[in-house]
């Protein structure tokens, strides 16, 4: 799975957690906070995202990325082991 596929998985989870964003364009440069997800919804996206990618990591290892592109890079690197 390449990095863009990981990003697509994340965006899919965002639309599940926040159905109001179903029609809105979501880009790699967007941060979850900026598009309106509160702190608990952001965690929910991370949990669902890891589940969809088959990852089981401590949540704190996902701290740091400033936008969805950086988060996709991080998860992609974790998938590569």
């Amino acid at each position: 799975m390449d990095r863009n596929a990981v990003l697509a998985v994340l965006i899919e989870q965002i639309r599940i957690v926040e159905p109001a964003l179903a029609e809105q364009e979501i880009k790699a440069e967007d941060s979850m906070a900026a598009i309106g997800l509160d702190s608990m919804s952001r965690q929910e996206v991370l949990i669902l995202g890891m589940e969809a990618l088959g990852l089981n990591l401590p949540m704190v290892q996902l701290f740091g990325p400033r936008n969805l592109g950086e988060l996709a890079d991080l998860l992609h690197a974790k998938l590569q082991g």
């Binding site: 702190s39 965690q43 991370l46 949990i47 949540m59 704190v60």
Partner: peptide
């Protein structure tokens, strides 16, 4: 983990996202 703290006598600091992550873990 440095999620939230009281580094001085009368102030608090931290990162809400990191604190939620540590709590969930």
């Amino acid at each position: 983990v440095m999620d939230t703290c009281r580094p001085g006598p009368d102030n608090e600091a931290g990162d809400a996202d990191l604190s939620l992550m540590a709590y969930l873990d």
